[in-house]
Structures are given as C-alpha cells and as structure tokens.
Design a protein around this nucleic acid. Structure first.
Lengths: 248, 248
DNA sequence: GGACAAAAATTAGTCTGACTAATATCGAGA
DNA sequence: TCTCGATATTAGTCAGACTAATTTTTGTCC
C-alpha cells in the first residue's frame, strides 16, 4: 500500500480546452492568418474527432479571449490584431510592504516624467485644472476619504496635462493596485499626523503646481520626485510602526 | 428611397454573449462571491430561459476569461482573485508617428528612472552586466539585426539592475509594441547614417554605463534622458524624411 | 453514537440530431 | 455585364440522452 495517496492533480484538461489550445496554437503559428476564416464547425468536428458542442465551446473560449470572432451564416474569423500580451502586475504580488514599494517606484517613474511633460506642454486650461485640483485638496481638509479623492484628482490632472493619454491610463492602472492600501495609510496618517502632515503634503503639492504653472520642466520633475519619494518613505515608516505596534 | 443603406451595425450580440455578460455582472457586483459556486447549469438554463448549450458556451467564455473554473461533478466556481483589468495599449493605436512617439514617451519615463535606480542600487555583478552589454554592441558592429538585439540587451541589463522586476516587465511589454518598427528604423539609419550614427549612439550608451558604474544617480538619469529623447527625435526626423521621399 | 462503506443523487462533460437565421454562392434572365 | 432570386453553406439555438466525477445520503457494523 502506498504511504500516501498520490497528489490528486486536478487535471482540468477537457476536450474543450484541448481543442481550444490546438486551434490557438494553429493561429499563433500562422497556419490560420489574421482575417482568414477558420474551417467550418463540421470540418473541425471531424478533424478533431469531437462533437460539435466541443468545437463550439472551444470557439466560444477563443472568442472570449479575443482570438477570433464569429459571423453567423459566414464563419469564424481570426482577429486581425491579436493583442499582444498585456502588462499586468499580479495582485498576489502586491501583498508585502517591499512589493508595494516596488510598484510605487514604477508609478513614481511615470509620474515624475509626467510632471515634466505637463510643465512643458500644458495648455492654459490644463494648468488651471491642476491649480483647481490643488485648491480642492485644501478645501476638503481633514475628511480622509474626500482628501484621498482630491489628491487623486490632483495627480490625475497632471497626467492629463501631459497630453499623452498613455500616462493617464497607466497611472489609472497602477492606482487600482495600490489605492486600497494607500487610503488606509492616509486615514491612519491623518488621524495621527494631523495638521502638520497635511500641511507638509500640501507644500509639496504646491511646489509641483507652481513649477507646472510657470513651465519649469526640471523643477516639476524634482518636486514630483521629492513628493513621491517622501510618500513612499512615509508609507514604509508607517508600515513598520504598524507592525511594531501589532507585535507589542 | 433612402440615400444610403442604414449602417449594417454587425450586432454580434447573441444569447451566449448576453448570458455571459449578465453572469459576469452578477459576479462583479458581488452577488456571487469569489470561491462561491454558481447555480448548476439546469438552474441557469431555466432562469435565463435559454438552452443548456447557451449556458455552457457562456460559462466556457467566462472560464477563458479567468472569471470562473469548472469542476466536473461538482460545479462552477467563481475564481478567488479576479485580476484587475490589465494595462494594455491597443496595437491599433500604435500606427501613426505621433502615436508611436507617445508610447516612446511612456517608455522613456520608465527607462530614465530605471537608469537612476540602477546607478543607486546595482550590485557589482549587475554593473558588470551593463558594461558587458555595452561592449557587445561595439562588437556586433554594423549587423543591423544583431545590433538591435545588443541594444535591447543593454537596456534590459539596466532594467534588471534596478532590482525591481516590474521595470523589466514593463519595458518588455512596451518593446513588444514598438520594436518591429524600431528595427526598421535602425536598419535604415545604419545603412544611411552609418558610422557616425553608430558612434553617436555608442557615446550616449557609454555615458549611461559610466554613470551607473560610478553610482551617479542623477547623471544616469540625465544620460538616459538625452539618449531616449535623441532617439525619439531621430525617429521623428527619419519618419518625416521617409514620408517626403515616398511622396516625391 | 460514530466511523466506515455502499448507494443514490447531483453536476459538469460529451454526443447526437434537429431546426432557425444570417450569409455566401450560383444561375437565370434582362 | 449586371441584377435578382433560388440554393447552399454556416453559425446560433434547442432538445434529449448518456458518461464521468463529485457530493450527499443511507445503511451497516463496531
């Protein structure tokens, strides 16, 4: 008798996944070129020696993946531009403090350059948007939820002022990864650090806004760099304090 | 008689897509929590008033999207960590010269900061890797394909030297968007600009490598910025020349 | 009662056949 | 040659059956 049962290994291989994988491979390899029509279902049925249900579910999978599109009465066609693999940071990788700092570093890189581009290229309207966002942070004051949102809008206004939508979209993506924790941080900090903390933040914001307003590219980058590095350091300090507190 | 036929609007809505969308919405809204089991197929069949084929193809779609997973004999379960929407630049958006420049701007932002981080944190081994990559560019000389690859490795070595895998991965993603065209550019340039062009590139590379070697964070950033801005300008100039040439 | 095993019920996977609706193809007529 | 209509092709949907894996229930023995 074996000492322990062999690991079950939930083989979720099914005919559907097999057929989908083989079809996907054929497309990848170029056997079916973009724009080209796949063989009709009944042909795939006999070639793969499976039922039509299996073929249809496999095609439904590939359609969901954006690999093909179906046209009723016509056929299934390979999509023209099969998207390159997207950029994705696994949420599972954003769990520890160091890993979050790594994400913040990438975000900082983009925001720093965004501040520089904004200073160089912002329209008068965009400059006004940044200034308004800054004022809004002052107005909301201590409400931590509102403050977090106002802070977000400030950074968003800067990204928009670059005139390059990729910056806005990328920062939007990064935010989705770290914002939940950041909000906690801000709430904690504001309840602890209170006025002094908020004023320091606002001084940093103000420096950024001024540089963008006067078109000082280098100054905007430096100000944003100081702001984000400061934020990251504050985050790390807070995290270590929180840990020390929970261990005591 | 109408002047022109009404736009066909290929409505690719089907029962399958509808059911999949509604189920996805129920999951998004939290009606079905992660880890929870979906109602069995025959229940969905009567609730949505569709056949089992439709339900199954809808579930196959969601499975392909990573939203759920099926366990034969047990049920369909909502995946625990439904990934956040990834960052993706549509290839369709990377077709014109200005749009490519926008992508290059985002790439530059990340590479500039990567150079700074590399200068600050690189291990001796990583510094050596960067230097070796630089030397390799010299060695391959005029072979445009090899040169493009060596150039890529140089930038890759710098990203690796940050010690932050997100930088490497992000630049890898960006490369997948613009490299095909860049290679063409390099080939054209090398055949036209020849030695002078290569030597200028290598001087820029060398400046970056030196700054990283001695741990000059600001210098590394500046050198990388000059290099990438120069590259973008050269690309734009080449593109406009190519256009002028094709029009003549 | 509790632990274990067998039986039953539940559930997803697969197959078959049919019909519908949209599209594509072909041929006859102008 | 072009247009229009009939025909063929094809994906979408429905229905029912059977298989295989899992879960639940039941029954038995201790």
């Amino acid at each position: 008798m074996p000492p322990v049962a062999i690991a079950p290994i939930p083989r979720d291989r099914t005919l559907v996944t097999d057929v989908a994988a083989r079809l996907a491979q054929l497309i990848e390899s170029g056997a079916f070129a973009p724009g080209q029509r796949l063989p009709p279902e009944h042909v795939l049925t006999e070639q793969f020696a499976v039922s039509r249900s299996v073929v249809r579910e496999a095609i439904a999978s590939m359609r969901a993946e954006g690999l093909v599109n179906s046209r009723r009465g016509s056929g299934v066609y390979v999509n023209e531009h099969r998207q390159s693999q997207p950029f994705r940071i696994s949420l599972a990788d954003v769990d520890t403090v160091p890993s979050i700092v790594q994400v913040l570093e990438l975000r900082a890189a983009v925001e720093i350059e965004a501040a520089g581009l904004a200073a160089r290229r912002r329209s008068p309207q965009q400059a006004a948007d940044v200034s308004n966002a800054l004022r809004r942070i002052d107005e909301v004051g201590h409400d931590s939820v509102e403050a977090a949102q106002a802070d977000l809008h400030f950074h968003q206004a800067i990204a928009d002022a670059t005139g390059n939508a990729h910056f806005s979209e990328f920062l939007n993506y990064i935010r989705g990864l770290v914002i939940p924790r950041q909000r906690v941080r801000i709430e904690t900090q504001t309840s602890l650090g209170s006025d002094a903390y908020l004023q320091m933040l606002q001084r940093e914001h103000c420096r950024i806004e001024q540089a963008i307003a006067v078109g000082d590219e280098v100054g905007a980058r430096d100000a944003m760099r100081d702001h984000l590095i400061g934020s990251a350091q504050r985050y790390q300090r807070w995290a270590s304090e929180a840990r020390a507190q929970s261990e005591s």
